[in-house]
Structures are given as structure tokens and as C-alpha cells.
Design a protein around this nucleic acid. Structure first.
Lengths: 199, 199
DNA sequence: CCCCCAATGTAGGCAGCGCCTACTTAGTAG
DNA sequence: CTACTAAGTAGGCGCTGCCTACATTGGGGG
């Protein structure tokens, strides 16, 4: 009577959780719906009840990726110390996430973009809104452009460092130092003084 | 008698050229050895004479990618104007390449790295050696670390900007401005003065 | 000059995959 | 209790990568 029940109960979550592990292990190429079904102990058609096709699974993974990254950033933002320390923590959190889940980042920022479900777009928006809030209150409308530039440059630099580390071009310790240097450079720049630390 | 000859003559090159187009059109997921064979007008087993498996094709693509990017950078370096202008041109060339061939960049900097043929590693090394030379003669042994940091930060930032543009997070024009701002920031930093423009 | 051989391409089979359809089971709402 | 729906099963289709056996070709050594 302790047989596996007909209904899994939380197959969708189980598939996503397992997919994250496979993604870390074998990349997106190694991700197969049938394999995930086997690992979950269900038939090969079962995932279709939760994901209309493979791309739907990848989109769901991207969404959870954005949400996890957002919560990491929020955690890094907690605390009352100065803006430099906070940004440094955010940068480290961002890069560490992007390194540990590099294949997931490729799903979040795909090289060949296609129209995405609004849930993914919303999750992505939330991440950048969080980064935006992290910079504190706005000071003037004219600095809005500079502020956005700074945010994009911040995200781009962290993403780029993570890419170099993930692809084994530089090792992790070197990447850590690079993050520190990048933050020093960015926070010391004129662009930053007009946005993050005015006056 | 004007039949297609039994031997293609330059199948390997034809496959690689066609693969670049498919890569731009459909990404790495859409790249199939059998499809490439069909496009080249040969049987589905023919590519095996030139690429032992699919990964070998991807590796060859990565190698040609590094070589093409290197030549773009070299072209951007031509000219006698000051180091700022040269670096700005290199940055634009790098970002434009990474945007136009974003899927190829993923093959060059894979999220799930595996041991790669020495030909790929050599081509990658050549690219970074070219970037290294672009910074002009070295000034002191103690600045060697700062110099490498600057190079890595340069590559990372450009790669990150390209990723944001390629994945449609920011548009191309915004990316162009971001490149300018990034270069202004990097060349104005203390790290740069210790390496690129000392004194 | 010719013949043999290595390189190149052909043909077919195998297992795994994504996607589709028809069917079954389980939980729930009326 | 019964109907309806969500969730899972089972099987088929065409595609893929990879493997093996075989055919064709062109070039280099006897």
C-alpha cells in the first residue's frame, strides 16, 4: 500500500528542482523532459501536464532564476552600512549566482531571444527594479539617464566577469578580485557621483 | 555530366560557413549535423569525415569565432591616433561582434565548460594576446597584475553589454552609448592610469 | 603507367528525444 | 452519487546523433 501514488502531488516543482541540478551538471543540452520524468518516477508524457513543451520548462526555469537572483540581491542589500559596502555585497552575490548557475543565466539572458511569457518578463523586471531601488532615492530627472546607464553597466560588468569565470577563462579567486576592482572603478567614476553618491 | 561530383571539394568549410548562418538564425539548438549535410547537398554521414561528432563541429566554430574576433580587433587597432580612440574602436568592434554572433560567443565562452581541443585554446589565447598587445609596451613588473585586471575587466564589460543587447534587455543604440560610457569610465580610472596611460 | 590505398561520401540501423493523440485514473464540485 | 476536469499512462511519428559496412575517388609509390 506504500506504492507510489498515481498522482505525484508536486510534479511541477519536482521537475524544476531536478532541472536546476541537471542544468548545473550537464548544461541546457543535457536537459531532457523524458529524463526529468524518469528521475521523478513518472511516465514520459507526464511533464506535458505542467509544461506545454520544452521551451515552457526553460521559460519557467528562467523565471525562477530571476526570482532567486532577486532574493539574493535583496539579501545582500540588507544592512545599514554605506552604499559602497552594500553595492560590493550585491556585486559579489550577483557574480556568485551567475557562476554557480551559469547555464541558468543563459536561459535568463538568451543569445537567441524569442518572445517570452509575461511571467518571465515580470520576473526580469523585478530584478532590475530591485537593482534600481538599491541605488537609493532619485535626485533629479536629468540624472535618470545616467542612473540607468550605471545600473546597466553594473549588471553588464558582473555578468561579464561571471562569464569569464564560468567558462574557465579566469579562476574564481581572480574573479573575486576582479569584482572588487570593478566596483572600485565604477563607484569612483564621475557617472557614479552623479547617481549613487551625488555631491 | 555536370552532375554534382562525388567529392564535395570543400565540405568542411561549407559546413562551417553554413553553420554560422544557422547559428545566427536559430541558435545552437537549431544546429544539426544532418541539416547541415542536407544544405550542403551531401548524405547525412558525410560530415563525420570532417567532424568526429557534433561537439567537434561546435569546437571548430568556436575556433573560427576566436580567429574572426581577433582579426576584427586587429583591424580596430590599426591607425596612429591616441590610445583612447583605439580602445574605443576595439570596444565597439568587440561588442558588435558579440551581438551579431551572440550564439557563437556562447560556444566560445560556454557556461558548462569541458576540455577543449588545443586549437580552440590556442585561438582563444591569440585573442587575449592581441588585446594585451593593444595596451602597448609594459611599464613595470608590479603593474602586470593591474594590467591583466584591466584587460579582463575590459573583456568582461564588453561581453556583458553585448549579452544585455543580444538578449533584448537593452536596444542596440543604448548599447552603443553604454560602450562609450564604459570606456570613459575605465580609461578615466586609476587602474587605467597605472597600466594604459601611466604618469 | 597502373594499381593500391587512404580519404571522402553513401546507406542503413539503433536508441533517445520532442511532440502528438487516445486512453485511464483520481480528486472534486454539484 | 455522479459528472467533470486535472493529472498521468501508453504508444506512435519524425527527427537527431552516433555507429557500422560499403562505394567512390584521386593521388602517390611500385
Amino acid at each position: 500500500m506504500t506504492e507510489r501514488p498515481f498522482h505525484h502531488g508536486s510534479l511541477r516543482t519536482a521537475l524544476l528542482d531536478e532541472a536546476i541540478l541537471v542544468l548545473r551538471e550537464s548544461g541546457v543540452q543535457g536537459l531532457s523532459l523524458r529524463d526529468l520524468a524518469r528521475r521523478a518516477g513518472v511516465s514520459h508524457g507526464a511533464p506535458r501536464s505542467h509544461f506545454v513543451d520544452r521551451q515552457a520548462l526553460l521559460d519557467a526555469l528562467a523565471e525562477t532564476g530571476f526570482r532567486r537572483l532577486t532574493s539574493h540581491v535583496e539579501l545582500a542589500l540588507a544592512g545599514q552600512d554605506d552604499v559602497r559596502q552594500r553595492f560590493l555585497r550585491v556585486a559579489r552575490a550577483y557574480v556568485n549566482f551567475a557562476i554557480d548557475d551559469a547555464a541558468l543565466m543563459d536561459l535568463m539572458f538568451p543569445a537567441t531571444p524569442a518572445p517570452r511569457p509575461s511571467a518571465v518578463a515580470d520576473a526580469a523586471h523585478d530584478l532590475f527594479a530591485t537593482l534600481d531601488n538599491a541605488m537609493g532615492p532619485r535626485h533629479s530627472a536629468t540624472d535618470e539617464v545616467a542612473r540607468e546607464s550605471f545600473e546597466m553597466l553594473f549588471a553588464a560588468t558582473m555578468q561579464g566577469i561571471a562569464t569569464l569565470v564560468a567558462s574557465n577563462r579566469i579562476d574564481r579567486a581572480r574573479g573575486d578580485r576582479l569584482v572588487d576592482e570593478a566596483m572600485e572603478m565604477m563607484l569612483g567614476s564621475a557617472l557614479a557621483t552623479r547617481t549613487v553618491a551625488p555631491g
